[in-house]
Write a protein that binds this DNA or RNA. Structure first.
Length: 548
RNA sequence: GCGCCCGUAGCUCAGUUGGACAGAGCAGCGGCUUCCUAAGCCGCAGGUCGGAGGUUCGAGUCCUCCCGGGCGUACCA
């Protein structure tokens, strides 16, 4: 049992003793910011005050007299709050439980093995991945890890849009580069892809194919489309490999069409009476449901829009048996998201099935020319290049360090620093230091065996920083849960930096080895700290090195 | 114009279901290292939480309006 659970149990017991009602929303407990307010406090008296028509402080005082538990050192009523302080023995027991759980510590069984899909990146194969996609890759992968830790069966999925107008433009842009390589002055289409990355490929095709495609014919379009998509996918795979993200399922847009799903879902919407025809196209009556505009589902040339396919894709996800789907997408897709959600609602799919994790964009501070990135204009920094420069861990960590819905200013200066000013190294180095102590302990014959860890006397852990460390370790599972459910891996960064922030000063001040009875106790504590640091970092997709 | 997001210390940002005098890192200033790695540690200073109303015993947190910034507002994806 952890701190919050213990406090709730103790307070529930006191309420029963006093014949007071227990609030339906549960007993609120919180770790106060100030040490003088104890280890854990509750504002329960405020909740009961209205119902009982008594001042909170009086209720809190009654609770103080009724609270009794061998783990509780003291209870106080201050300004209506009930402040509880624990005996160290309770914390030692928490630590022992953490050690017993080992690497599984921090996990939950909330998912119950149900299947959940995280769809992310899903960048069109029109160019390599940019730094912006890097945020999505890091974010999506971290969320997938977090939901796995919550007990969900997680599938990572990439939606591959390998058809349509953008791909046509890509093909034509590549063809233009190919003609240029043959010495012809063919411009890249105005709204095409102007990035340098197509130049060497155009040269390559010029060598390989010679003057086989002098004009932009259907045959040329097909040939250039095929090779362009293939090569762009190759680059995307390189970028994903660089940042260390892999997918379980790749779904191609073309497959959805071939299965007739798009048509079927369109007809289903039509039967619901939300489709109308205008100017030769078919529109969805979204404004009737409060959305700002009606979107086109089927163009006047008979082809479905991206939205229509997207709706069908999500129907497919439901049929594939996912209990929950989280799409990680950029803020420029918000309207699209509203439309998809509306369509699913009209079709009768459950409300909570689909949810979006929307993130804002990345700007690079300290790098000229790529403040605002655009794949089309060829103004971007390739993800792989950033990873090559900074290392995977740094890129990953920086990308998830801010809450998704806020703009991310990627500080190149800070990211390049290898000192502990760089938060990634600050956290990793805490892990490494502990590993280093363990190696030293081994040398000196002071290290703990697995058996020893279970049996060790923890009572020497009475230093305020040792107590603080245990309390912080005790918080870890809640952080994991909040980071997952709130789509906020940044909370995990905060937590890890905080934990490292207690450890480093402690390490600096307190000797671990050669301290008699205190040594095994401290080694046990550091074992738990190390486990939690490693687990936290791994949830973010960041390594926890033994040596740096 | 309309929709969504953001606006907290010089900078980059946290702030859990509204709660106890508003926090961290960096930058600034001042100290500290014979040690299990100084790729460090300690301390000081710094904010009318964009502005104005409102709800509440209590608002950085909820509601309304305004200001500033971003994104979207395509028969593109």
């Amino acid at each position: 049992m952890r701190l919050e659970a213990l406090a709730r149990a103790v307070i529930a017991d006191a309420l029963t003793k006093l014949s007071l009602p227990s609030p339906s929303e549960g007993i609120p407990v919180k770790r106060p910011e100030k040490a003088e307010y104890g280890d854990i406090s509750s504002r329960i008296a405020f909740l009961l005050a209205k119902e009982l028509r008594r001042p909170p402080q009086g209720i809190a005082q009654d609770l103080v007299t009724a609270v009794s538990h061998p783990d509780i050192a003291s209870a106080e009523a201050v300004g209506g709050f009930l402040n509880i302080r624990l005996r160290p023995v309770a914390l030692w027991r928490f630590l022992r439980e953490i050690l017993a759980e080992g690497e599984g510590y921090g996990g939950w069984d909330l998912g119950g093995g149900r299947s959940l899909q995280v769809e992310f990146v899903s960048s069109n194969p029109t160019g390599p991945l940019t730094v912006g996609h890097g945020r999505q890759a890091a974010l999506g992968d971290a969320l997938a890890n977090l939901f796995s830790a919550l007990g969900w069966e997680v599938t990572r999925e990439y939606y591959l849009n390998d058809e349509g107008r953008q791909i046509e433009l890509l093909a034509k842009s590549l063809w233009a580069r190919y003609r240029q390589a043959l010495g012809e002055d063919v411009p890249v289409p105005e709204d095409g892809y102007h990035g340098d990355y197509l130049v060497p490929l155009g040269e390559e095709l010029a060598r390989e194919w010679g003057n086989k495609y002098p004009g932009w014919t259907p045959e040329a379009a097909e040939a250039f489309r095929r090779v362009a998509v293939e090569r762009m996918m190759g680059m995307i795979h390189e970028d994903l490999a660089a940042i260390g993200v892999s997918f379980d399922v790749w779904t191609k847009e073309g497959d959805l069409h071939r299965r007739g799903l798009v048509r079927e879902v369109f007809e289903a919407l039509r039967e619901k009476g939300v489709v109308y025809e205008k100017d030769g196209a078919f529109w969805m009556r979204s404004t009737s449901y409060g959305l700002p505009r009606d979107p086109v589902l089927i163009r006047s040339d008979g082809t479905p829009t991206y939205l229509m396919v997207d709706i069908a894709y999500h129907v497919d996800k439901y049929r594939r048996g996912f209990a929950r789907v989280i799409d990680v997408q950029g803020a420029d897709h918000v309207e699209e998201q509203q439309q998809v959600k509306l369509a699913l609602k009209i079709l009768g799919y459950p409300e909570g099935f689909l949810d979006y994790c929307v993130h804002q964009f990345v700007t690079l501070k300290g790098r000229e020319g790529v403040e605002r990135m655009s794949t089309r204009k060829g103004k971007f920094l390739r993800l792989k290049d950033l990873v090559d420069e900074l290392g995977r861990d740094v890129v990953r960590y920086f990308m998830v360090r801010r809450k998704p819905e806020a703009h991310l200013v990627f500080d190149m200066e800070l990211a390049k620093k290898t000192s502990m000013e760089n938060p990634v190294y600050y956290v990793q180095y805490a892990h490494t230091r502990i590993a280093s102590i363990f190696r030293e302990a081994e040398k000196r014959g002071e290290s703990l065996t697995d058996h020893g860890i279970r049996e060790v006397d923890l009572s020497p852990l009475d230093d305020p920083e040792e107590i603080a460390l245990i309390k912080e370790l005790d918080r870890f599972p809640d952080v994991v849960r909040k980071a997952a459910e709130g789509y906020g891996p940044h909370l995990l960064c905060e937590y890890l930096e905080g934990l490292a922030g207690i450890f480093h000063p402690y390490y600096n001040r307190v000797r671990i080895l050669g301290q008699g009875k205190a040594t095994p106790a401290r080694l046990a504590l550091l074992t738990a700290v190390k486990t939690v640091l490693a687990k936290g970092l791994s949830l973010l997709g960041v390594s926890a090195p033994e040596v740096m």
